[in-house]
Amino acid sequence: MAQAQVAAKQSSIGFGKAERKLLTDPLDSNNPVTVQVLGICSALAVTTGMKNALVMAIAVVFVTMFSNMITSALRNSIPKAVRMIVQLIIIATLVTIVELTLKAVAFDSYKQLSVFIGLIITNCIVMGRLEAFAMANGPYKSMLDGIGNGVGYGIILLMVAFVRELFGKGELFGAKIIGNTPEYLLDTTTTWGLGWYANNNLMVLFPSAMFVIGAIIWAHRAWNPSLVDVS
């Protein structure tokens, strides 16, 4: 009787401490980018601007959430021998849905992100969560885990994009914030007193994403020493 009650409690759709942990852990102590160091490829490529990073983050949250849910719902009927292929079909379908939707509603972002939307299929975070979590937990919890990991990835993406767009182009979301005029003259119209700033082209190039991610990982571990690898 007691066991049945516990089981009922576990499968119920509530939002207790355990559920909150599923959502918040990937944002901090188990962040897919800074702690597990997954999904770095797209973090390099799509972080030249905040807008692209935001669209990419939303796309990844959508894919991780639904792929986790669907895989979890099917977990008992998926034949073990072909489970990776089945997971891949689920991910690929969702990514194609994202791609078709973006092409219809946000064509400019679709053009700019080009192949990187398709490459969400190969993003290790997505399949990693399917294997590590969704195959062993219920759909509701898997959904929370998917959202958590997607958002955890998205936050880092936005942080990197913030630094790269601001210091590389002097803009945020395409709107001018700091820096000189296009003719490399002192821009006195900016309100932040930083019209003298010369845009650092290195920030637009891919290597800068590595530097910024490295700095974020360092800051994260300095702030939370329990994350430091002991070797």
């Binding site: 998926i78 194609t96 849905i97």
Partner: peptide, 17 residues
């Protein structure tokens, strides 16, 4: 069973897409 599962799955996906 495996073949049946994969067939159903892929045709569903193909239909949706």
């Amino acid at each position: 069973q495996i073949i049946r599962f994969v067939l159903i799955m892929t045709s569903l996906v193909a239909l949706v897409l």
